[in-house]
């Protein structure tokens, strides 16, 4: 049998990145802003989202996509607490969403009636960072109990994020969490990352996040 070597030399993620760029273009043409929100499980993604949605829902037309391996607890919670329309995506065991799965999810959102879609990615600091979802921006939530060293342990996640929310600031006095050290660790990985300390529980900093988001949507739609 003749053996033949076919050279490929191609990144495994290249195909996904092409899909993601196409999706971003499409969203631009439709005037829809997609935010990819990532974090580890239990960092307060859903609670932060509820607080934020209640501040922006009268100013911008918004929908939420919840991605989880299974269950629809988050989608139900969002809908009940904010009235914002929310759909649940199941990744079927996968630890992340890619651009194709995001597109399939968006097919269930009435894009003509929204300005902003927030995608709550699977709770995980490793895999979602590797897959471009087609979102305009990546944001992540790091919570105080996780520790200020996380940017060093999960470098890729902090490298791909445009915005880092540091959540649960209200309990910081009980943990050995040094905000300045954390900011330094993040900026070491990603000098351009914007950082907003918040507490989804007390509401501290949530206005700043809401303003950032509204400004982002406005710029995306009008440029």
């Amino acid at each position: 049998m003749k053996v033949k070597v076919i050279e490929i030399k191609k990144s495994v993620f290249a195909e996904n990145e092409k899909d993601a760029d196409a999706l971003r273009n499409e969203l631009k043409n439709k005037g829809v802003y997609l935010l990819n929100l990532m974090s580890s499980p239990g960092s307060g993604k859903t609670t932060t989202l509820i607080q934020t949605l209640n501040r922006i829902k009268d100013k911008v037309r918004v929908a939420v996509m919840e991605a989880d391996i299974d269950s629809d607890v988050d989608a139900v919670k969002i809908k009940e607490a904010t009235g914002v329309s929310s759909i649940q995506l199941h990744t079927g065991g996968m630890c992340h969403l890619d651009a194709e799965m995001t597109r399939q999810g968006l097919d269930n959102v009435a894009l003509a009636d929204v300005d902003l879609v927030v995608l709550e990615n699977v709770g995980n600091l490793v895999c979602p960072a590797e897959f471009d979802t087609g979102a305009v921006r990546n944001a992540m939530i790091l919570s105080v109990p996780e520790g200020d060293d996380k940017p060093l342990k999960y470098p890729l996640m902090f490298t791909v994020c445009d915005l880092v929310l540091i959540n649960k600031m209200d309990v910081a006095p009980y943990f050995d969490f040094d905000l300045e050290r954390c900011k330094n660790n993040i900026h070491q990985r990603n000098p351009k990352a914007k950082i907003i300390p918040i507490s989804a529980k007390t509401g501290e900093g949530v206005d700043a996040f809401a303003d950032w988001l509204l400004n982002e949507v406005h710029t995306w739609k009008n440029s």
Binding site: V3, V5, I6, E7, I8, K9, K10, S11, L156, Q188
Partner: peptide, 27 residues
């Protein structure tokens, strides 16, 4: 890691080592 062993600087960047590539197939 992140800190340069020569000069202790943290101003360092990965230039190689995060590849996930298909090199070739043998048929």
């Amino acid at each position: 890691g992140k800190t340069c062993p020569h000069c202790n600087s943290d101003n360092t960047w990965l230039i190689r080592g995060n590849e996930v590539e298909i090199n070739s197939i043998i048929v």
